[in-house]
Design a protein around this nucleic acid. Structure first.
Lengths: 229, 229
DNA sequence: TGACAAAGTGTTTACTCTACACTAATTAAT
DNA sequence: ATTAATTAGTGTAGAGTAAACACTTTGTCA
């Protein structure tokens, strides 16, 4: 028989999800209004407890799916938050994850059921517990990640214009970018396909649509790039 | 009375520490020989369980102190490892931390008592469970961290030569660096003080000793720099 | 057909990074 | 005292990258 660790303390482990979305108003986070005490009615990240028979990644995926109905979403583990008094109800350690979703795909019904709402990151309410810290971590990580991996496309529709991509990066990095320099840097990554199709909504001339070419990117098998915007 | 989360699963949470040291042979990791089953006699990271009344940072600090006797050591949380079957004894989630210590300061007695040994990172034994993954994560994080924060000095004696610093960065990044370019990049950070004191051990001419000027660095209050070596 | 609105497109300049080799200082040996 | 040996210490030129910058094109709607 194996040894056991029976004399050690066990604790509650939860996951909390920072869910990013993007639309023409900017970079947004999906929050829910907490419907139980303490802090009932306050805004909160979406979270849930780890079950004994699942990994943290599974738990995060499950929680995200539960609230949004989405699957196959880009998620990344951020950090474990563990201050002793972080949750007044019980000793709980929470592992924060962030997710990038295409804001158009989310299930509005589900979100309404949970009293969820999108908030622009520059205009967020105060959140419960240490969730503000988690969000700050997530934004930092997302900024860094965009410079090393092609994660931006996760936040856009499958087909998007250069302008949308530019505005996305401006929202993530919170700074203005030069259009021509941006386009040439993106093109030098050589991971987009330009479609023979135009988006006619934003201008009379119409602007070409692009797609992220995942196969071309994977074929390069570079673990990460250095995109300095 | 507060609500409770009483229906939720509780789990064991541990911390595992990747302890880096540096000497003239290169970058090293401190490992212990596990003295209980399963995997008795195999090499392992130093770890311990989180107690209910401490944060993960405290637990990591406590574990490090327990094995090495050291305090006030640079530590950083890496990642939570949570595959369901990662520990065959019991369901345990482990949060990995890495620590940077001055190899000369460690308490040799303590380390002997625990059957601990330093291994060059290029010449490490296979470790138990998922500890090899943890080490790989730690090395990646350390490489990145050296480009944004002045962490290298944690691995050196208080006074060090430019050559030592160069060799440290070469060991961390696993690549040869040009001496003149390296020195000018380091100097441009403007965070070292050159002492009126030479190290006479490595050459007849003797080479100047430097110290990290923490006050000057803090005064700049830049959260991070970009050191591209 | 003219006004409008956004799309699309290159070049010059400044800066940063890289490659590269000799002299200086000191001690040990003869 | 001279020489040999060893590592320390130092600068520049060229290449490459990043930044700044403005006009023309296209199509629709009035």
């Amino acid at each position: 028989m194996l040894n056991s660790y029976s004399s050690e303390d066990k604790v509650l482990l939860s996951v909390d999800c920072i869910i990013f979305g993007f639309d023409n108003e900017g970079l947004k986070i999906l929050l829910i209004k907490r419907d139980f005490e303490p802090e009932r009615g306050k805004w909160s990240l979406m979270g849930g407890f780890l079950k004994k028979e699942e990994s943290l990644n599974n738990a995060a995926t499950r929680v995200l799916n539960h609230y949004t109905g989405l699957q196959n979403v880009y998620m990344e583990q951020l950090y474990a938050f563990s201050e002793v008094d972080r949750d007044p109800v019980d000793r709980t350690i929470s592992v924060a994850y962030y997710a990038l979703i295409n804001i158009e795909n989310h299930n509005t019904e589900l979100i309404k059921n949970y009293d969820a709402e999108w908030f622009n990151i520059s205009n967020m309410p105060k959140l419960i517990f240490d969730h503000d810290d988690m969000v700050a971590h997530a934004i930092r990580r997302l900024r860094y990640r965009t410079s090393t991996k092609p994660v931006g496309f996760e936040l856009l529709p499958e087909k998007f214009t250069m302008r949308q991509l530019l505005e996305l990066y401006e929202a993530i990095l919170d700074k203005a970018l030069d259009k021509r320099n941006f386009i040439s840097k993106i093109n030098s990554l050589d991971i987009l396909v330009k479609l023979n199709e135009k988006d006619m909504l934003s201008s009379r001339k119409g602007s070409y649509l692009y797609m992220f070419d995942k196969e071309k990117y994977d074929a390069k098998s570079l673990n990460n790039f250095a995109l300095n915007l």
